[in-house]
Design a protein around this nucleic acid. Sequence first.
DNA 1: CTGTTAGCGCCTTCAT
DNA 2: ATGAAGGCGCTAACAG
Lengths: 341, 341
Amino acid sequence: MNVTMKDIAKIAGVSVNTVSRALNDKPEINEDTKRRIKQIASELNYTPNSIAASLASRKSKTIGLIIPDICDPFFAQQARGVEDTAEKEGYSVILLNTDEISEAELDAVETLRSIRVAGMLLTSVFSRTDHIENLKKQKVPLVLLNRRCQEIDTDYVINNNEKGAYKATKHLIKLGHKRIGVILGPQRITSVQDRYAGYMKAMDEAGIEKSAEYVVCGENFKPDTGELLAEQLLQNNLRPTAILAYCDSLAMGAYAAARKRGLSIPEDLALVGYDDIPYAKYFEIPLTTIAQPAYKMGEVACKIILEKIKSGGGRNRVKSEPQHIVFEPQLIIRRSCGARS
Amino acid sequence: MNVTMKDIAKIAGVSVNTVSRALNDKPEINEDTKRRIKQIASELNYTPNSIAASLASRKSKTIGLIIPDICDPFFAQQARGVEDTAEKEGYSVILLNTDEISEAELDAVETLRSIRVAGMLLTSVFSRTDHIENLKKQKVPLVLLNRRCQEIDTDYVINNNEKGAYKATKHLIKLGHKRIGVILGPQRITSVQDRYAGYMKAMDEAGIEKSAEYVVCGENFKPDTGELLAEQLLQNNLRPTAILAYCDSLAMGAYAAARKRGLSIPEDLALVGYDDIPYAKYFEIPLTTIAQPAYKMGEVACKIILEKIKSGGGRNRVKSEPQHIVFEPQLIIRRSCGARS
DNA sequence: CTGTTAGCGCCTTCAT
DNA sequence: ATGAAGGCGCTAACAG
């Protein structure tokens, strides 16, 4: 079996406790014995058992990251931001995908609770919020990513979705579009609501009449879904001259839908996405989009969770107000919207 | 603190052991007491402590996945294949990125050893192999992904890299190209070697003279690296008329390099990638590439590791021969190579 | 079927 | 600076 501290202790002729102190670089220990113990440990090819350490100390060195789908480059970048940050502090991250399915999210939270992760980062679909309520009650450090929670006040890291969608819509309006379709996702998601609100605000400000037929919602954010929804928009008698997609993945589907109908972008149809995934600028017609700093957002969210963990997970320390970090969205103009740069 | 089996036992008036049996659906237990115990557990909002369970049973329900970079869609898809499969069996996966840096890989393995993961899936850079040797000695279930190991016989799941590159190169040759540049990665990586071998084989068979100036290698597979390497190829006095990129991410960089030089694809420069990431077909000029079944590969690798884990990690069971799964690569012809379909 | 006895490998007091 | 004792929450033999 594996080498344990006990084995090392026996060889070194000291107690297990001393070995523990040496290997964990605790102050109360003689430098010489420490060196000697470390030497023996390395000779024996000792690997600490963090399972045992976790159990004994009731502290774990892993954090959980729940996202819709790692295959979406936006979430992949965010995940890297989280992992790089966690790793620097000696934490590992467990990744769980939900595909925007509420059940999967509940399961994921349960799994992470069971593993006793030190903290959780959650991009929630918010079909329910009782699990979030529970986490709060149980004092599990939690930071919401990308989406706020209406009902419960928690820390979150998002970008200003309303503003982003507002900027995008306004840009299209400036280019002369009036019939602007919008492709959204599940309506309970706050980022969907917020982007929709931004769209509406821009339309209202411009005094453009809105039509319910120009608003479509899907169950997830995959390209295939985007294609279906775009087709739906394009079937209108008076078809929209521009489409704002909730995210670049959905926008990708819109390219396909346009091609099928023989519509060329941007001449027949202007298109704007959201996220600025790294591929957006390599598309057939480079995609105009709203950039949000995915990696940075993951990094910041992870830093906050790490802080919360260190401050005793709120268990001991005075609980400070939840942090709300909001990044500024940025309009990236490329060819798909038809603007000349 | 958290509810434990002890708490439940006290309330139910039974021993901790009985609670354990009930909650884990062991056979030797009365159906009624089981129901009663489960009832109490649910009322108390009990969440099992898998840390403690792992320590006691010396079995963990997490597996480790080490890959170069989750931001590469190929690896993202593979990761999903792994995670979906693991989840079905009640396993969680810890994801670690190496960026093809050997140190990072060693650290990752150490971390996973320390967490006592049930098994590891590894896409290695193979700058060293002692860590793999160690894992084998320690009977840690291990499956290599994407890349074989020359020195040590282990299970692996790959695609036929030589054949894939051979197909791609031959395709370019058929289209009339003779000056074919190739963009590779770190040379110790077997998939790099294999794809290079496939390229060479096709060139040799066609009797085309090879030039060292047409072969460039980078330190990783990121688009930026691809751009630099493509520029290098295009600086040759007799610049290549076609480029074969080790992967689609590198090919993406080549698009940028070509644009910078005012070369149009495929007229001035034919381009072929590898992987068929989901974005390849949406590129400015859709990318001809070699497809490998990323998700499936992750799935299969995960299934193998799960089997190995169940068969006692090789600790108890008769050790069977390592499995070598090789998927067939598939040529996907799009516009970037200049072929008419 | 159920309870008892022992740990798993480590950390955490408290002594010394 | 070091050791001894106790326990983290659970599983794993054994007894009954």
